[in-house]
Nucleic acid binder design. Structure first.
Length: 365
RNA sequence: GGAGAGGUUCCCGAGCGGUCAAAGGGAACAGACUGUAAAUCUGUCGGCGAAGCCUUCGGAGGUUCGAAUCCUCCCCUCUCCA
Protein backbone atom coordinates (compact mmCIF):
# COMPACT_ATOMS: atom_id res chain seq x y z
CA UNK A 1 0.00 0.00 0.00
CA UNK A 2 1.38 3.37 -1.02
CA UNK A 3 -1.07 5.92 0.34
CA UNK A 4 -3.98 6.12 2.68
CA UNK A 5 -6.66 8.78 2.99
CA UNK A 6 -9.12 8.08 5.77
CA UNK A 7 -9.96 4.45 5.16
CA UNK A 8 -9.41 4.72 1.43
CA UNK A 9 -6.30 2.90 0.29
CA UNK A 10 -4.04 3.45 -2.69
CA UNK A 11 -1.85 0.48 -3.54
CA UNK A 12 -0.17 -1.78 -6.04
CA UNK A 13 -0.57 -5.47 -6.58
CA UNK A 14 2.14 -7.51 -8.25
CA UNK A 15 1.16 -10.44 -10.42
CA UNK A 16 3.06 -12.63 -12.88
CA UNK A 17 1.54 -10.61 -15.71
CA UNK A 18 2.23 -7.19 -14.31
CA UNK A 19 1.49 -4.75 -11.56
CA UNK A 20 -1.99 -3.38 -11.10
CA UNK A 21 -2.91 -0.12 -9.42
CA UNK A 22 -5.55 -0.16 -6.72
CA UNK A 23 -8.30 0.77 -6.17
CA UNK A 24 -9.15 -0.97 -9.40
CA UNK A 25 -12.15 -2.05 -11.42
CA UNK A 26 -11.85 -5.35 -13.28
CA UNK A 27 -14.05 -5.80 -16.34
CA UNK A 28 -15.84 -9.14 -16.38
CA UNK A 29 -14.92 -11.55 -19.14
CA UNK A 30 -16.73 -14.67 -17.99
CA UNK A 31 -16.02 -16.97 -20.89
CA UNK A 32 -12.62 -15.59 -21.81
CA UNK A 33 -13.87 -12.46 -23.46
CA UNK A 34 -15.25 -9.16 -22.31
CA UNK A 35 -18.44 -9.28 -24.30
CA UNK A 36 -18.27 -7.39 -27.61
CA UNK A 37 -14.70 -6.09 -27.08
CA UNK A 38 -11.27 -7.17 -28.27
CA UNK A 39 -8.20 -7.27 -26.02
CA UNK A 40 -6.84 -4.41 -28.09
CA UNK A 41 -9.86 -2.30 -27.24
CA UNK A 42 -9.57 -3.23 -23.56
CA UNK A 43 -5.98 -2.12 -23.62
CA UNK A 44 -6.99 1.19 -25.19
CA UNK A 45 -9.50 1.58 -22.37
CA UNK A 46 -6.61 1.08 -19.93
CA UNK A 47 -8.08 -2.06 -18.43
CA UNK A 48 -5.38 -3.61 -16.28
CA UNK A 49 -6.91 -6.91 -15.27
CA UNK A 50 -10.01 -8.83 -16.27
CA UNK A 51 -12.07 -11.68 -14.87
CA UNK A 52 -12.77 -15.15 -16.13
CA UNK A 53 -15.07 -17.76 -14.67
CA UNK A 54 -14.20 -21.28 -13.63
CA UNK A 55 -17.64 -22.80 -14.01
CA UNK A 56 -18.25 -21.35 -17.46
CA UNK A 57 -14.80 -22.10 -18.87
CA UNK A 58 -14.85 -25.60 -17.41
CA UNK A 59 -18.09 -26.36 -19.25
CA UNK A 60 -17.05 -24.63 -22.46
CA UNK A 61 -14.49 -24.94 -23.95
CA UNK A 62 -13.14 -27.03 -21.03
CA UNK A 63 -10.18 -26.20 -18.80
CA UNK A 64 -8.03 -28.88 -20.44
CA UNK A 65 -8.44 -27.15 -23.75
CA UNK A 66 -7.54 -23.79 -22.27
CA UNK A 67 -4.48 -25.41 -20.75
CA UNK A 68 -3.50 -26.85 -24.13
CA UNK A 69 -3.88 -23.37 -25.59
CA UNK A 70 -1.24 -22.22 -23.15
CA UNK A 71 -3.56 -20.90 -20.47
CA UNK A 72 -6.24 -18.28 -20.54
CA UNK A 73 -3.83 -15.44 -21.39
CA UNK A 74 -2.63 -17.15 -24.52
CA UNK A 75 -5.99 -18.54 -25.42
CA UNK A 76 -7.71 -15.16 -25.51
CA UNK A 77 -4.62 -13.15 -26.38
CA UNK A 78 -4.62 -11.01 -23.25
CA UNK A 79 -1.18 -10.59 -21.74
CA UNK A 80 -2.17 -8.64 -18.63
CA UNK A 81 -3.38 -10.10 -15.37
CA UNK A 82 -6.47 -12.28 -15.12
CA UNK A 83 -8.50 -13.23 -12.09
CA UNK A 84 -10.78 -16.25 -12.17
CA UNK A 85 -13.83 -16.62 -10.02
CA UNK A 86 -14.30 -20.06 -8.56
CA UNK A 87 -17.87 -20.79 -9.58
CA UNK A 88 -19.14 -20.01 -6.10
CA UNK A 89 -21.45 -17.38 -7.52
CA UNK A 90 -22.94 -19.92 -9.91
CA UNK A 91 -23.80 -22.04 -6.86
CA UNK A 92 -26.28 -19.29 -6.16
CA UNK A 93 -27.28 -18.04 -9.59
CA UNK A 94 -27.87 -21.54 -10.93
CA UNK A 95 -29.62 -22.65 -7.77
CA UNK A 96 -32.21 -24.61 -9.70
CA UNK A 97 -29.50 -26.80 -11.19
CA UNK A 98 -27.33 -27.83 -8.28
CA UNK A 99 -27.17 -29.63 -4.97
CA UNK A 100 -24.77 -28.64 -2.19
CA UNK A 101 -23.18 -31.24 0.07
CA UNK A 102 -20.36 -31.05 2.51
CA UNK A 103 -18.02 -32.46 -0.07
CA UNK A 104 -18.90 -30.00 -2.82
CA UNK A 105 -21.59 -29.06 -5.29
CA UNK A 106 -23.24 -31.29 -7.83
CA UNK A 107 -24.18 -29.16 -10.82
CA UNK A 108 -26.30 -29.69 -13.84
CA UNK A 109 -24.86 -27.86 -16.82
CA UNK A 110 -27.04 -24.97 -17.93
CA UNK A 111 -25.88 -25.77 -21.46
CA UNK A 112 -26.80 -29.41 -21.94
CA UNK A 113 -28.12 -30.63 -18.59
CA UNK A 114 -25.18 -32.96 -17.96
CA UNK A 115 -24.10 -33.56 -14.36
CA UNK A 116 -20.80 -32.33 -12.90
CA UNK A 117 -19.24 -32.36 -9.46
CA UNK A 118 -17.32 -29.38 -8.12
CA UNK A 119 -15.23 -29.95 -5.02
CA UNK A 120 -12.69 -27.47 -3.67
CA UNK A 121 -9.91 -29.70 -4.97
CA UNK A 122 -11.49 -29.93 -8.39
CA UNK A 123 -12.00 -26.18 -8.57
CA UNK A 124 -8.33 -25.63 -7.69
CA UNK A 125 -7.29 -28.03 -10.40
CA UNK A 126 -9.49 -26.28 -12.96
CA UNK A 127 -8.26 -22.82 -12.00
CA UNK A 128 -4.70 -24.08 -12.19
CA UNK A 129 -5.34 -25.27 -15.72
CA UNK A 130 -6.89 -21.97 -16.67
CA UNK A 131 -3.78 -20.28 -15.35
CA UNK A 132 -5.09 -16.98 -13.98
CA UNK A 133 -2.86 -14.77 -11.85
CA UNK A 134 -5.38 -14.51 -9.05
CA UNK A 135 -7.77 -17.33 -8.21
CA UNK A 136 -10.66 -17.67 -5.80
CA UNK A 137 -11.36 -20.27 -3.20
CA UNK A 138 -14.52 -22.26 -3.87
CA UNK A 139 -17.27 -20.78 -1.74
CA UNK A 140 -20.97 -20.94 -1.35
CA UNK A 141 -22.57 -17.60 -1.99
CA UNK A 142 -25.77 -17.66 0.04
CA UNK A 143 -28.78 -16.01 -1.54
CA UNK A 144 -30.61 -13.05 -0.06
CA UNK A 145 -32.76 -13.24 1.86
CA UNK A 146 -31.57 -16.29 3.81
CA UNK A 147 -32.03 -17.20 7.45
CA UNK A 148 -29.13 -16.45 9.74
CA UNK A 149 -28.93 -20.17 10.46
CA UNK A 150 -28.49 -20.92 6.81
CA UNK A 151 -25.85 -18.22 6.38
CA UNK A 152 -23.97 -19.52 9.43
CA UNK A 153 -24.01 -23.08 8.14
CA UNK A 154 -23.01 -22.01 4.68
CA UNK A 155 -20.19 -20.01 6.20
CA UNK A 156 -18.77 -23.08 7.90
CA UNK A 157 -18.82 -24.97 4.63
CA UNK A 158 -17.09 -22.09 2.88
CA UNK A 159 -14.38 -22.01 5.56
CA UNK A 160 -13.74 -25.74 5.28
CA UNK A 161 -13.60 -25.44 1.54
CA UNK A 162 -11.17 -22.53 1.80
CA UNK A 163 -8.82 -24.75 3.80
CA UNK A 164 -9.17 -27.57 1.28
CA UNK A 165 -8.50 -25.13 -1.55
CA UNK A 166 -5.39 -23.90 0.15
CA UNK A 167 -4.17 -27.43 0.87
CA UNK A 168 -4.70 -28.61 -2.68
CA UNK A 169 -3.35 -25.59 -4.49
CA UNK A 170 -0.70 -26.57 -7.01
CA UNK A 171 1.32 -23.43 -7.77
CA UNK A 172 0.91 -20.91 -4.95
CA UNK A 173 3.90 -19.00 -6.22
CA UNK A 174 2.27 -18.41 -9.60
CA UNK A 175 -1.35 -18.00 -8.61
CA UNK A 176 -2.51 -15.93 -5.67
CA UNK A 177 -5.38 -17.67 -3.92
CA UNK A 178 -7.90 -15.38 -2.22
CA UNK A 179 -10.13 -16.58 0.58
CA UNK A 180 -13.71 -15.37 0.49
CA UNK A 181 -15.36 -13.77 3.49
CA UNK A 182 -19.04 -14.66 3.76
CA UNK A 183 -21.62 -14.08 6.47
CA UNK A 184 -24.41 -12.17 4.77
CA UNK A 185 -25.47 -8.99 6.51
CA UNK A 186 -24.53 -10.29 9.98
CA UNK A 187 -21.56 -8.62 11.59
CA UNK A 188 -20.78 -11.48 13.98
CA UNK A 189 -20.72 -13.98 11.13
CA UNK A 190 -18.64 -11.69 8.96
CA UNK A 191 -16.18 -11.29 11.80
CA UNK A 192 -15.94 -15.02 12.37
CA UNK A 193 -15.46 -15.65 8.67
CA UNK A 194 -12.79 -12.98 8.29
CA UNK A 195 -10.84 -14.00 11.38
CA UNK A 196 -10.72 -17.67 10.47
CA UNK A 197 -9.61 -16.89 6.93
CA UNK A 198 -6.96 -14.51 8.22
CA UNK A 199 -5.63 -17.31 10.41
CA UNK A 200 -5.18 -19.36 7.25
CA UNK A 201 -3.09 -16.55 5.84
CA UNK A 202 -4.19 -15.96 2.27
CA UNK A 203 -2.38 -13.50 0.00
CA UNK A 204 -5.63 -11.60 -0.45
CA UNK A 205 -9.21 -11.56 0.77
CA UNK A 206 -12.45 -11.32 -1.08
CA UNK A 207 -15.75 -10.20 0.34
CA UNK A 208 -18.55 -12.19 -1.22
CA UNK A 209 -22.27 -12.43 -0.81
CA UNK A 210 -22.98 -8.71 -1.06
CA UNK A 211 -25.00 -6.84 -3.65
CA UNK A 212 -27.27 -9.85 -3.93
CA UNK A 213 -30.46 -8.01 -3.02
CA UNK A 214 -29.79 -6.61 0.45
CA UNK A 215 -30.15 -2.89 1.12
CA UNK A 216 -27.23 -0.69 0.15
CA UNK A 217 -26.84 0.50 3.70
CA UNK A 218 -26.32 -3.15 4.74
CA UNK A 219 -23.61 -3.60 2.14
CA UNK A 220 -21.84 -0.41 3.24
CA UNK A 221 -22.26 -1.33 6.89
CA UNK A 222 -20.55 -4.68 6.30
CA UNK A 223 -17.59 -3.29 4.37
CA UNK A 224 -17.14 -0.57 6.96
CA UNK A 225 -17.35 -3.18 9.70
CA UNK A 226 -14.78 -5.42 8.04
CA UNK A 227 -12.31 -2.64 7.30
CA UNK A 228 -10.47 -2.64 10.66
CA UNK A 229 -10.52 -6.46 10.80
CA UNK A 230 -8.89 -7.09 7.43
CA UNK A 231 -5.08 -7.15 7.16
CA UNK A 232 -3.71 -3.78 6.14
CA UNK A 233 -1.03 -5.10 3.83
CA UNK A 234 -3.18 -7.38 1.71
CA UNK A 235 -5.64 -6.68 -1.08
CA UNK A 236 -9.36 -6.68 -0.44
CA UNK A 237 -11.67 -7.55 -3.24
CA UNK A 238 -15.39 -6.81 -3.04
CA UNK A 239 -16.89 -9.34 -5.41
CA UNK A 240 -19.54 -8.40 -7.93
CA UNK A 241 -19.87 -4.74 -6.96
CA UNK A 242 -21.23 -2.57 -8.38
CA UNK A 243 -22.69 0.75 -9.44
CA UNK A 244 -20.31 3.72 -9.73
CA UNK A 245 -21.50 5.08 -6.40
CA UNK A 246 -21.09 1.65 -4.78
CA UNK A 247 -17.46 1.64 -5.87
CA UNK A 248 -16.76 5.06 -4.41
CA UNK A 249 -18.42 4.41 -1.07
CA UNK A 250 -16.67 1.06 -0.74
CA UNK A 251 -13.29 2.53 -1.62
CA UNK A 252 -14.02 4.84 1.27
CA UNK A 253 -14.49 1.70 3.37
CA UNK A 254 -11.09 0.32 2.43
CA UNK A 255 -11.87 -1.87 -0.60
CA UNK A 256 -9.15 -2.22 -3.27
CA UNK A 257 -10.66 -4.31 -6.03
CA UNK A 258 -14.04 -4.58 -7.74
CA UNK A 259 -15.62 -6.42 -10.61
CA UNK A 260 -19.11 -6.14 -11.96
CA UNK A 261 -21.05 -7.02 -15.07
CA UNK A 262 -23.01 -3.83 -14.75
CA UNK A 263 -21.11 -1.52 -17.12
CA UNK A 264 -20.97 -4.12 -19.89
CA UNK A 265 -24.32 -5.80 -19.41
CA UNK A 266 -26.23 -2.55 -19.10
CA UNK A 267 -24.36 -1.15 -22.07
CA UNK A 268 -25.53 -4.06 -24.21
CA UNK A 269 -29.07 -3.31 -23.12
CA UNK A 270 -29.01 0.39 -23.81
CA UNK A 271 -27.97 2.08 -20.57
CA UNK A 272 -24.60 3.79 -20.13
CA UNK A 273 -22.97 5.35 -17.11
CA UNK A 274 -21.69 8.93 -17.01
CA UNK A 275 -20.37 11.32 -14.40
CA UNK A 276 -23.85 12.87 -14.37
CA UNK A 277 -25.64 9.58 -13.78
CA UNK A 278 -27.11 6.75 -15.76
CA UNK A 279 -28.22 7.52 -19.29
CA UNK A 280 -30.75 5.27 -20.98
CA UNK A 281 -29.28 5.92 -24.36
CA UNK A 282 -31.89 3.86 -26.22
CA UNK A 283 -34.64 6.20 -24.99
CA UNK A 284 -36.68 8.27 -27.42
CA UNK A 285 -35.53 11.51 -25.81
CA UNK A 286 -32.17 11.14 -27.58
CA UNK A 287 -33.64 10.66 -31.03
CA UNK A 288 -32.47 14.05 -32.27
CA UNK A 289 -29.75 14.70 -29.73
CA UNK A 290 -26.56 15.23 -31.70
CA UNK A 291 -24.26 15.67 -28.71
CA UNK A 292 -21.92 12.93 -27.51
CA UNK A 293 -22.99 10.86 -24.50
CA UNK A 294 -20.72 13.06 -22.39
CA UNK A 295 -19.04 16.07 -23.96
CA UNK A 296 -16.15 15.87 -21.51
CA UNK A 297 -15.54 12.15 -21.99
CA UNK A 298 -12.45 11.19 -23.98
CA UNK A 299 -13.49 7.66 -24.94
CA UNK A 300 -13.61 6.52 -28.56
CA UNK A 301 -17.40 6.53 -28.54
CA UNK A 302 -17.77 10.06 -27.21
CA UNK A 303 -15.05 11.43 -29.47
CA UNK A 304 -16.75 10.09 -32.58
CA UNK A 305 -20.47 9.45 -32.21
CA UNK A 306 -23.64 11.21 -31.16
CA UNK A 307 -26.42 10.13 -28.81
CA UNK A 308 -28.81 10.15 -31.75
CA UNK A 309 -26.61 7.78 -33.71
CA UNK A 310 -26.10 5.36 -30.85
CA UNK A 311 -29.80 5.42 -30.07
CA UNK A 312 -30.51 4.70 -33.71
CA UNK A 313 -28.16 1.71 -33.59
CA UNK A 314 -30.00 0.37 -30.55
CA UNK A 315 -33.37 0.90 -32.19
CA UNK A 316 -32.12 -1.00 -35.24
CA UNK A 317 -30.67 -3.77 -33.11
CA UNK A 318 -27.19 -3.24 -34.47
CA UNK A 319 -24.21 -4.92 -32.80
CA UNK A 320 -22.20 -1.72 -32.98
CA UNK A 321 -24.61 -0.16 -30.48
CA UNK A 322 -23.54 -2.65 -27.82
CA UNK A 323 -19.90 -2.17 -28.62
CA UNK A 324 -19.94 1.62 -28.54
CA UNK A 325 -21.96 1.65 -25.33
CA UNK A 326 -19.65 -0.92 -23.70
CA UNK A 327 -16.60 1.11 -24.66
CA UNK A 328 -18.05 4.22 -23.12
CA UNK A 329 -19.20 2.65 -19.87
CA UNK A 330 -16.01 0.70 -19.27
CA UNK A 331 -14.02 3.82 -19.99
CA UNK A 332 -16.12 5.66 -17.45
CA UNK A 333 -15.66 2.99 -14.76
CA UNK A 334 -11.91 2.82 -15.33
CA UNK A 335 -11.59 6.59 -15.43
CA UNK A 336 -13.58 6.84 -12.21
CA UNK A 337 -11.07 4.51 -10.55
CA UNK A 338 -8.24 6.60 -11.92
CA UNK A 339 -9.78 9.72 -10.40
CA UNK A 340 -10.30 7.91 -7.11
CA UNK A 341 -6.63 6.89 -7.00
CA UNK A 342 -5.56 10.46 -7.69
CA UNK A 343 -7.87 11.76 -5.00
CA UNK A 344 -6.41 9.35 -2.45
CA UNK A 345 -2.89 10.38 -3.41
CA UNK A 346 -3.92 14.01 -3.03
CA UNK A 347 -5.62 13.23 0.26
CA UNK A 348 -8.94 14.67 -0.77
CA UNK A 349 -10.82 11.43 -1.32
CA UNK A 350 -13.84 12.29 0.78
CA UNK A 351 -14.35 15.57 -0.96
CA UNK A 352 -14.01 13.88 -4.34
CA UNK A 353 -16.39 11.09 -3.37
CA UNK A 354 -19.05 13.40 -2.00
CA UNK A 355 -19.00 15.63 -5.04
CA UNK A 356 -19.35 12.62 -7.36
CA UNK A 357 -22.05 10.91 -5.31
CA UNK A 358 -24.39 13.86 -5.80
CA UNK A 359 -24.95 12.94 -9.42
CA UNK A 360 -24.00 9.31 -9.99
CA UNK A 361 -27.30 7.75 -9.01
CA UNK A 362 -29.43 10.07 -11.12
CA UNK A 363 -31.00 9.08 -14.38
CA UNK A 364 -29.84 11.62 -16.95
CA UNK A 365 -32.83 13.07 -18.78
C1' G B 1 -66.75 -9.75 -68.99
C1' G B 2 -66.93 -14.63 -65.77
C1' A B 3 -65.48 -17.29 -61.04
C1' G B 4 -63.58 -16.75 -56.27
C1' A B 5 -61.10 -14.47 -51.84
C1' G B 6 -60.95 -10.37 -48.85
C1' G B 7 -61.20 -5.23 -46.37
C1' U B 8 -60.28 -5.71 -38.11
C1' U B 9 -57.45 -1.10 -33.39
C1' C B 10 -49.84 2.23 -35.97
C1' C B 11 -48.45 -2.51 -39.20
C1' C B 12 -49.25 -7.89 -39.97
C1' G B 13 -53.01 -10.98 -38.37
C1' A B 14 -56.94 -14.08 -35.30
C1' G B 15 -62.01 -13.58 -34.29
C1' C B 16 -67.32 -15.24 -37.50
C1' G B 17 -74.34 -13.42 -32.83
C1' G B 18 -73.45 -12.12 -26.40
C1' U B 19 -67.88 -14.17 -22.09
C1' C B 20 -64.77 -8.37 -27.61
C1' A B 21 -61.81 -2.46 -26.61
C1' A B 22 -61.26 -7.28 -29.74
C1' A B 23 -56.05 -13.41 -29.45
C1' G B 24 -50.99 -13.50 -31.22
C1' G B 25 -46.83 -11.21 -33.45
C1' G B 26 -44.27 -6.68 -34.90
C1' A B 27 -43.40 -1.62 -34.22
C1' A B 28 -43.49 2.14 -30.54
C1' C B 29 -42.91 3.82 -25.46
C1' A B 30 -41.18 3.36 -20.24
C1' G B 31 -38.15 0.72 -17.03
C1' A B 32 -35.11 -3.15 -14.57
C1' C B 33 -30.29 -5.21 -14.60
C1' U B 34 -24.40 -5.57 -9.06
C1' G B 35 -18.35 -12.52 -8.40
C1' U B 36 -22.74 -12.64 -16.86
C1' A B 37 -27.82 -19.33 -18.18
C1' A B 38 -28.74 -12.01 -20.11
C1' A B 39 -28.11 -8.46 -27.81
C1' U B 40 -32.30 -10.58 -21.68
C1' C B 41 -36.54 -9.60 -18.84
C1' U B 42 -40.87 -6.61 -17.13
C1' G B 43 -44.72 -3.20 -17.94
C1' U B 44 -47.77 0.13 -21.22
C1' C B 45 -49.82 0.25 -25.89
C1' G B 46 -58.53 3.68 -28.50
C1' G B 47 -60.50 7.84 -25.04
C1' C B 48 -62.12 9.50 -19.93
C1' G B 49 -58.67 9.51 -13.00
C1' A B 50 -61.26 4.08 -11.00
C1' A B 51 -66.03 0.84 -10.66
C1' G B 52 -68.05 2.30 -15.06
C1' C B 53 -68.98 5.07 -19.33
C1' C B 54 -67.89 6.70 -24.42
C1' U B 55 -65.96 5.89 -29.56
C1' U B 56 -63.95 1.67 -32.79
C1' C B 57 -63.58 -3.74 -36.80
C1' G B 58 -64.18 -0.25 -45.49
C1' G B 59 -69.15 3.04 -46.15
C1' A B 60 -74.57 3.46 -45.74
C1' G B 61 -78.84 1.07 -44.31
C1' G B 62 -81.33 -3.22 -42.05
C1' U B 63 -82.40 -7.93 -38.91
C1' U B 64 -81.89 -8.84 -33.49
C1' C B 65 -82.97 -7.82 -26.56
C1' G B 66 -77.74 -7.75 -28.42
C1' A B 67 -73.57 -7.30 -34.48
C1' A B 68 -66.54 -7.01 -35.91
C1' U B 69 -69.58 -11.42 -36.57
C1' C B 70 -76.23 -12.23 -40.17
C1' C B 71 -78.87 -9.54 -44.59
C1' U B 72 -79.05 -5.53 -48.65
C1' C B 73 -76.70 -1.95 -51.55
C1' C B 74 -72.24 0.79 -52.45
C1' C B 75 -66.72 1.66 -52.50
C1' C B 76 -61.93 -0.59 -52.69
C1' U B 77 -58.11 -4.59 -53.00
C1' C B 78 -56.21 -9.40 -54.58
C1' U B 79 -56.25 -14.36 -57.30
C1' C B 80 -57.80 -17.33 -61.32
C1' C B 81 -60.44 -17.86 -66.15
C1' A B 82 -61.67 -15.42 -70.71
Amino acid sequence: MKHKDGNARRGELKTPHGVIQTPIFMPVGTIANVKTLTPHELTDLKAEIILGNTYHLYLRPGHELVKKAGGIHNFMNWDKPVLTDSGGFQVMSLSGLRKITQDGVRFQSHIDGSYHMFTPERVMEIQNSLGADIIMAFDECPPYPATKDYVAKSLKTTLEWAKRCQDSQKEPDKQALFGIVQGGVHEDLRQESAEKLIEMDFPGYSIGGLAVGEKKEDMFRITEFLNPIMPKNKPRYLMGVGTPSDLLVNIGNGIDMFDCVMPTRNARKGTVFTRNGRMIIKAARYKEDFRPIDDECTCYTCRNFTRAYIRHLFAANELLAMRLASIHSLHFYLELMHMARKAIENRNYNEFMNSMLKKLDNIVE
